[in-house]
Amino acid sequence: MHTSTSSRPPGRARVHTLPVRLTHWVNAYAMGCMFMSGWGIYNASPIFGFSFPEWATLGGWLGAATIWHFAVMWLLVANGLLYLLASLFDGHLRRDLLSVRGADIRRDMAAALRLRLDHRAGRYNAVQKAMYLGVLLLGLLLVLSGLAIWKPVQLQGLTALFGGFAAARVVHFIAMAGVALFVVVHVSMVLLVPRTLPPMITGRAPRHVPEGGRDA
């Protein structure tokens, strides 16, 4: 008896490579440590009229927070370089992130505001692409402004580019706030669409089969 293609189980497809999954989870740990140790450093000399609660900081005092911050910084930079190299090698960066247009962003943003944005595991919509590219640029800004703060004499040219030590601290804080906002939105989307989490662990998700039975 002939069985139609549409009646067959869709199976599972690979949606995330091992380098993407590995760097994602290392990044999650490293960013958490960077946020908390950075907030501890900030509290020692606040830029604005507030401080972060003690429970949200890492290290307990300025010296330990600084050690944590600089140690994890190298893990974060190495992890970021691994992600970029792997993404360039397997085409992930070009295929999944760089192929975005302004019109696509406006269309998907309108759909997201109406809660009608389609989501398929392993495929980034235009809003996601823009957010990921934006957070990569913020990460670069964090590294450069962080170096300007860390070595203001040795890297005085870089520090001057940011407008001086004090201005570099403000830029560093604003870039950190931008990354933190990305994390909040990212986690919120995972909570709203929880089926996106398992593929980031296993690398595979049910294959999408649209109406008509042909694999998409």
Rank of each mutant, 00 (worst) to 15 (best):
G178H: 04
A86R: 04
D90A: 15
L137A: 11
D118V: 12
G146C: 12
R95I: 15
I105E: 04
G80E: 06
G146N: 10
E54F: 09
N79M: 07
L144H: 04
F165Q: 04
L113N: 13
N79A: 07
E54P: 00
A177H: 03
A168D: 15
L81Y: 06
R123S: 01
W68T: 02
V171Y: 00
V77I: 15
P152S: 12
G91M: 07
W150D: 05
S99K: 05
G59M: 07
L93D: 10
L181N: 08
D104I: 00
L141C: 06
V179T: 14
L147H: 10
G122N: 05
L144M: 12
L117A: 12
A111P: 01
R101H: 09
T66V: 08
R94M: 09
L155N: 09
F162A: 15
L58N: 03
H119R: 13
T57Y: 02
L181Q: 11
G91Y: 04
F173D: 00
R101Q: 13
L82H: 08
R123T: 04
G91E: 13
M73A: 14
R123P: 01
K151T: 12
M73S: 11
M109C: 02
A112P: 10
I174W: 10
N125L: 15
L76R: 04
D96E: 12
L62I: 10
K129G: 00
A56F: 09
P53V: 02
A175Y: 06
A111W: 01
G91L: 07
L147P: 09
L147G: 08
D90T: 15
V153F: 15
G146A: 14
R116D: 14
W61N: 11
A103Q: 13
A121F: 01
L133D: 02
A112H: 08
G59A: 09
L113R: 14
